[in-house]
């Protein structure tokens, strides 16, 4: 039984493309839920907005406008990205304007519904690909800039990636680094302090002369933009987008990651994502190896997928019991929640 392969696979995935997508979405949730106390259960909608705006612009809009702008297809991605962020901002306003004046629960209800509405509506819109979704060379503009040598797999120490994946991973981590820096700078400022105040008790902060509505809206928009960045990476990396990728589970995985790493900690989502994906892939690969080599005789290969979630779930529960503040949390701070 070769655990080395399982280990390198797990490491590659823990800092790979999927991890980047989840990390970006979770960083957005950290701003909304962790710092501002906004219960956004529809982060997946912001991710979907990113993927679909890019997909539709590149595959549908660009070919349609080449007649009056011949080089549209060479630049379309760079126009689609700011457009996706703009749509994300509009979505935040749409969700926030009616709900942020109300109690926190209303935002939770509205966001979880929005995620599902978005998925189901997109399924029946033909220009957006319907059930099939959109696929093609969506990331072509991005991959054209790939500086890595033209080989099948790029090895970096313990981890290996395909040539296109390594380009996504490198750019992804640069973007994440910058956004973590932005989060840190914002959250140590008086603005971040007022957000944390709103999380604790909005009325108290109102009574101190702060426009809490505005700040909650800013947090919702910023967190949504992070989610949309995740969607942009998703569609560029996978070069396809299907409506059924955007199920509510996505948001709940993000919450798991967030709580695992530490809520309202700048590096919480980072650590949570790496551990979560490492555990998930490591258990999967180990089980596959064990089943294939006959070490485990009572499992079929097809059962490995669900079993790994059970095992990871047990591991998370044990962590919750023995280290309730998770990785980066502060036990003293957590104890204050009990009252």
């Amino acid at each position: 039984m070769d655990l080395g392969f399982a280990l390198t696979q797990a490491l590659s995935q823990a800092i790979g493309v999927t991890a980047i997508i989840y990390l970006l979405a979770t960083m957005g949730l950290n701003i909304q839920f962790g710092y501002a106390g906004l219960l956004n259960f529809g982060q997946v909608a912001f991710v979907a907005v990113g993927s679909y705006t890019i997909g539709a612009c590149v595959m549908t809009v660009a070919p349609a406008i080449t007649s009056w702008w011949p080089s549209a297809e060479s630049y379309i991605l760079w126009i689609a990205i700011p457009l996706a962020l703009l749509v994300s901002l509009l979505l935040s306003l749409l969700l926030g304007i009616p709900t942020l004046r109300l109690r926190a629960d209303y935002l939770a209800i509205v966001t979880i519904a929005t995620g599902e509405i978005f998925r189901l509506v997109v399924k029946s819109i033909e220009p957006l690909g319907g059930v099939q979704g959109i696929s093609g060379k969506i990331g072509a503009n991005f991959y054209a800039l790939n500086p890595f040598p033209d080989v099948d797999r790029v090895e970096l120490g313990l981890v290996t990636y395909t040539r296109s994946d390594i380009w996504v991973v490198v750019v992804g981590w640069i973007v994440i680094g910058l956004l973590l820096l932005l989060t840190w700078a914002l959250m140590r400022s008086p603005w971040g302090r007022s957000l944390r105040g709103i999380r604790e008790d909005e009325d108290a902060v109102l009574a101190l002369g702060k426009n809490t509505y505005l700040r909650k809206m800013q947090a919702l928009i910023l967190g949504g933009l992070f989610g949309t960045m995740a969607g942009i990476f998703w569609v560029v990396a996978k070069q396809s987008v299907q409506p059924d990728s955007f199920v509510p589970d996505f948001t709940f995985f993000c919450y798991t990651i967030l709580i695992l790493g530490g809520v309202a900690r700048v590096l919480g989502p980072l650590i949570g994502t790496i551990i979560f994906w490492f555990l998930l892939v490591f258990t999967e690969q180990t089980l596959i190896t064990a089943v294939e080599s006959g070490t485990i005789g009572f499992l079929e290969l097809t059962q490995v997928g669900p079993i790994r979630f059970i095992l990871v779930g047990v591991a998370l529960m044990l962590l919750m019991i023995f280290r309730p503040q998770w990785i980066l949390g502060d036990r003293k701070e957590l104890a204050l929640d009990a009252r």
Partner: peptide
């Protein structure tokens, strides 16, 4: 009493000051 539990006592106090330039999102960074 509405003390902001998971903020330090000093942060509770500092939150009270009005007209803080750093409370505008653009200036915060």
């Amino acid at each position: 009493t509405k003390s902001l539990s998971r903020l330090t006592v000093l942060d509770n106090m500092r939150l009270g000051a009005t007209g803080q330039k750093g409370e505008r999102m653009g200036a915060a960074i």
